[in-house]
Write a protein that binds this DNA or RNA. Structure first.
Lengths: 209, 209
DNA sequence: GGTTCGATTTGAACGGTGCTTAGATATGCT
DNA sequence: AGCATATCTAAGCACCGTTCAAATCGAACC
């Protein structure tokens, strides 16, 4: 209801509390970590009573879903520009690097995004929004690099494989056990690239290009 | 009260409350899900007061660490038998399949195991216990399949790549979005195998064997 | 303009949580 | 036996998610 009112008139009592709550939640999340992200703290941060959010979100989890939604949009933007700046068969690895870098720059947000995607129902067919958009971007890039769009199962599997690699790497990169390895390679991005290159994943369709 | 009386030599007041608490936690976790896993609920399940656990664990997180420790031991056992039953270059994929299957059979436990490993400090050097054991098992198998143990960085990267693939797949397999794909392939195990085979990861060292 | 109506916000409350503290109780050792 | 210690309980604190009646305010209608 009344998603985004343009600037001319203050629409409601508080302004746009829904937006304010989501922003406050993300701010709190990145500043204080996921443990500090309570509904009451979000309401406090937004300057309203603890019960106010319940008129905009049925649940705490629904608020988190909204935060995750914003996160997927941010990630999608990052992947779009990363792909645009790369060329040829590097477009896929650029996508992967952008994905993992985003997850590492916003670890708490990424965890919430992931949980939200996990709990989502299977969509009737492919709709391009939220996390589906990023997923479709990977699949489309695979097609551009030579995968056969007719072999639907195979294409889907390749997309899943790429996604698994990126997600696994994103979470693994935070492990303290690998700090020395990352340092030996000269930074996280180099580490990501090296791990990706150890999976046959990305360079595979080269012979078709 | 004095319920568990092992009678042979367990000398303490309650028997072994620490063990009882960890078991109760895992039972509760697998039965009611991670949301129901409160310290008070665990104490209730074990038949003690809410403050009793604090004499055996400094924190809730320390209790969860103990649960995770048990989980890693269980996973290690599963991977050991899986590797023993496979031959040649299939030993590595058998390890991967066992890892992912375990994670899928105990999703809540796996999440706790993963979080515990994430927060662990980097070890001075390789010690073979807990999650390190499973990690070392993968690395050793890579060596057995022909990887050069002298190229330490490369070997570590290959191990990380394999681990990322398994972890990513384990979490991804729970997504409702992939149910149709899994069904099309005839079950989760087939799905795992198919995704693994889409990564150049596992069959790579074959030419050396 | 005044009135009504509905959406928004609040304050108080309920049950549950992690954790602390002080006191009770049983156990192992000498 | 007696004592020191480990173990457990009772009570309480601050915080959490959530609900609900009442208060507040914007806006539409007459």
């Amino acid at each position: 209801m009344s998603a985004s009112k343009p600037a001319d008139g203050k629409p409601y009592h508080h302004g746009d509390l829904r937006r304010a709550l989501v922003d406050a939640a993300r701010r709190l999340l990145e500043a204080e970590g996921p443990a500090a992200l309570s509904l009451r703290a979000v309401a406090r941060e937004a300057g309203v009573s603890p019960a106010a959010p319940y008129h905009h979100f049925k649940d705490k989890s629904e608020l988190l879903d909204a935060v995750a939604h914003d996160g997927w949009i941010m990630l999608d933007r990052a992947m779009t520009t990363a792909k645009a700046q790369a060329q040829g068969h590097q477009r896929l690895s650029a996508l992967g690097i952008a994905y993992v870098c985003f997850a590492r720059e916003h670890p708490a947000l990424y965890r919430i995004m992931y949980d939200a995607a996990r709990n989502k129902e299977a969509l009737p067919h492919v709709t391009e929004e939220d996390e589906e958009s990023a997923y479709c971007k990977v699949r489309q890039t695979l097609v551009e690099l030579g995968a056969d769009p007719k072999a639907t199962v195979d294409l889907e599997l390749a997309t899943v494989a790429a996604w698994c690699a990126a997600h696994g790497l994103a979470e693994m990169a935070g492990f303290k056990q690998f700090e020395h390895l990352i340092e030996a390679l000269g930074g996280e991005t180099a580490f990501f690239r090296a791990v990706f290159s150890h999976m046959g994943l990305f360079p595979r369709p080269r012979h078709e290009v």
